[in-house]
Each structure stands twice: as structure tokens, then as C-alpha cells.
Amino acid sequence: MTLPIFSVDQDPGPDFKALLTKYKVNISGDIAKFDASDIRHGTTVLAVKTSEGVVVAGDRRATEGNRIAYRSMEKVFAVDSHSAIAIAGAAGPAVEMVKVFQIQVSHYEKVEGSMLSLDGKANQLSQMLSAHLPLAMQGLVVVPLYAGYDLANKTGRIFSYDVTGGRYEEFEFATNGSGGRDAKSLIKLNFKEDLSSDEAAVIALRALADAADEDSATGGVDAIRKIYPIVVKVTADGFYRYSDDEIESLINA
């Protein structure tokens, strides 16, 4: 590897994806026909706005067709200090997209010396999704939820997406994945303005339990193996993931 120095007209700037393209790192190659049900899929994720910011949660099950492929999948990730992403859809490409997105955000921050705005980050994700569209058309659908604390406007914000890269800001809550509809109806009944993070986390856990009740592709609490849903909050203080013990006490609250 040599030092990546470019001439002025070839310079990719702070764009990590453009840099990868320059290096011919293959991020979305052509693939032959395949059966989409053979691919691992992740399922219910949700985000709820709170008075302090946002709460994002997801179940732990990954499926391949009608089989459970993985019991302790992580579908909620920190993107940077003040935002989180939750993924639903084909697990492989989704996790890869998260990885590139995380690097892209910190890459920009390091090169430019300042953080991208929350809108800027949401927009970046939108572009990554539309670049992924050819693969989505073949069955490898990835649909993320992006939520964070907007440091400029001092409020939590939630963005949902469609496969084409369409970006929609949600003002109360959003859900995604095959159990998303079940989760949404429970949140809708319990949501109010100015929930605390802990209150929202309790609602999120109940919504995931509801989704797991109705949807075979969503995993519930696995008390024997000690596998709990992932719940995180993003506030002015930054990203925080609830520990398993905290989640256990929230479930019993």
C-alpha cells in the first residue's frame, strides 16, 4: 500500500465511499440469481422520540426462510457519539452498509475537522441506499432507521427510509421490519409527548414483545440464554446502550 495522495482534480475529498471506489474495493459486486429466502434476514426495529432525545431498539433474531439462523444478532449500532442506526432486511448487506456508514461519518469528521450535521448524515445514508438499489431489486433489501440527537437544534430526530433511498423524517416514532406493524400499534397506544428515555425504553420493550408474539421472524426475550433485545438511548450526553441487567429491570417495571 502506498500513501493515498491524489492530484487536485482526482481528490475524493472527505468522501470515504468515493475513496473506496478509487481503490477499486468492491463494495457491491454483481451476483448471480439466488433465492432471497436463503439469505439471513433481521426483523423488528423501532425508534421513539423522547424529551431527552431518542430511544432505539431491536430484537435479536435472524432468519433464513422459516429457520432461525441466529439468536443473538445485533441490529442496533452507534454511528457516532450522537446517533444510532437500526437495520432490517438482508443481514449481510445491512451490516456492511452500517460499517461503511460508520467509517464515512468519522472519516468526514477527521478530514474536515468538524462533525457532519444530523441532516448531512441522514442524507449520506439515503445516498448509500439508492446506490444499493440494484441489489435490493434482486432481493437483498436493506431498510434502516436512523435516529440521533441533533446538537444544532437540541432535539432528538428520527429518519425512516425506503429501498430507493427515500428519506422521511418521523416526528414521534417509527418502526421497521416484518414485526414493525405489531410494534407500531403498541407504541401508538402508549406514546405521548415528553416521554423520559426510561419510559420510552419500557414502551419499546413491550412493543418488541408484542411483535415477537405475532411475528415468527421476530425474537422475544430469551431468559434461559440471557438474550435480551437491544435498547439504546441518544441524548445530549451522547449514545448509551442499556445493559442486560437494566433491560431486565425495565421489562419487570
Binding site: 500513501l3 473506496l20 481503490y23 461503511v100 467509517i103 472519516h107 478530514v111
Partner: peptide, 17 residues
């Protein structure tokens, strides 16, 4: 500064690969 940016690129590509 050109070397700083090149260093970030080198590190991020390496960390990604």
C-alpha cells in the same frame, strides 16, 4: 495537511479492509 489527510485515508482503508 496533505500528509495528514493521506494518513487518515490510509488508516481508514486499512481498518475497513
Amino acid at each position: 495537511d496533505q500528509l495528514r489527510v493521506a494518513g487518515i485515508r490510509h488508516a481508514d482503508i486499512k481498518g475497513y479492509t
